[in-house]
C-alpha cells in the first residue's frame, strides 16, 4: 500500500459530466510521480480530486492508511498535503517572507527555523525576503510558491504544472529544486506539460487519456515505450 493514494476516483465539476473515470494514482515518500496526458485528459482534475477541490462520485483517497475522502481541502492541508496551483500560486501583494509566514499559518509556535530551511533550499528568496512577490521574475515566483507550500512541512507535495510559462533554463533550475525537495523525504506528485523533462526526473509516471489510466510505469519505461513516445512525446 502506497503512502498517499487515490483509488478508482470518478467525478467532475459540480453536476457536470465525469471528467475522471475510475482513475487511480499513488505516490510514496521520497518519490516523484508525474501525471501526463493530452489536453483535457483530466490531469489537473485528478489532482484536484486528491486535494478535495471536487466532489467524487465514487472512489477513495487515503494518506498513510487513513481515509481522507470526506475531508475538506483545509483539513487535508492539516494532514500534511500541500498544493501549488498552476496560476495565482503566490500572494503577489505581500513580501517573500510574508508569503512563507502565510504558508505556516496552521503551524503553532515558532516557525523561524523552517523559514531558514526554505532559505537554504532557495537562496535567492533570502536575498529578496522583503521584496513584494509581484515584482519577482516568473522562476523566482515559482520558488516562492514552492516555499510557501513547504512551510507546513508536508508529507505530500502536489504541483500543478510547476514549469508552465518559464524559460527552458529556469525550467531545469526548478526541476533541480524539486529533486532537492524530494530528497527531504516528501512525496511529490506533479502534473506536467513538458513530458520528456518531467519523466527524466520522475521515479514513476501515469499517462491519463479521457480521465482513465492508460499507461503507467517508471519514468524510464514510459520514456522508452513506443506507444507513449508516438502519442505524447512527439516520436
Amino acid at each position: 500500500m502506497a503512502f498517499f493514494e487515490g483509488v478508482k476516483m470518478t467525478g467532475g465539476y459540480g453536476t457536470g459530466p465525469d471528467i475522471i473515470n475510475s482513475c487511480s494514482i499513488n505516490v510514496n515518500r521520497g518519490e516523484i510521480v508525474s501525471i501526463l496526458g493530452p489536453n483535457g485528459a483530466g490531469k489537473s482534475t485528478a489532482m484536484k480530486a486528491l486535494l478535495g477541490l471536487i466532489n467524487l462520485k465514487s472512489g477513495s483517497i487515503a494518506i498513510n492508511g487513513k481515509d481522507i475522502s470526506k475531508l475538506s481541502p483545509q483539513d487535508r492541508v492539516r494532514e500534511g498535503i500541500s498544493f501549488v496551483p498552476q496560476t495565482k500560486n503566490v500572494f503577489a501583494g505581500m513580501s517573500v517572507e510574508e508569503n512563507l509566514e502565510m504558508g505556516a499559518y496552521l503551524r503553532e509556535g515558532d516557525y523561524q527555523n523552517i523559514i531558514d530551511e526554505i532559505y537554504e533550499l532557495f537562496p535567492i528568496l533570502k536575498e529578496k525576503r522583503n521584496q513584494l512577490v509581484g515584482e519577482l521574475s516568473g522562476g523566482q515566483r515559482q520558488q516562492v510558491a514552492l516555499g510557501r507550500a513547504l512551510m507546513i512541512k508536508p508529507s505530500v507535495l502536489m504541483l500543478d504544472e510547476p514549469t508552465a510559462g518559464v524559460s527552458p533554463i529556469v525550467m531545469d533550475e526548478l526541476f533541480d529544486h524539486i529533486i532537492k525537495v524530494k530528497r527531504t523525504n516528501v512525496a511529490i506528485l506533479m502534473v506536467e506539460q513538458n513530458a520528456k523533462q518531467a519523466l527524466n526526473i520522475s521515479d514513476r509516471g501515469y499517462v491519463l487519456v479521457t480521465g482513465e489510466n492508460r499507461y503507467s510505469g517508471t519514468g524510464k519505461e514510459l520514456l522508452n515505450d513506443p506507444r507513449v513516445r508516438s502519442s505524447f512525446l512527439g516520436g
Partner: peptide, 11 residues
Amino acid sequence: DNEDLALLSGI
C-alpha cells in the same frame, strides 16, 4: 490578495 491560496494555506 488571493482567496483560493489563503484557503489552501489553512486560513
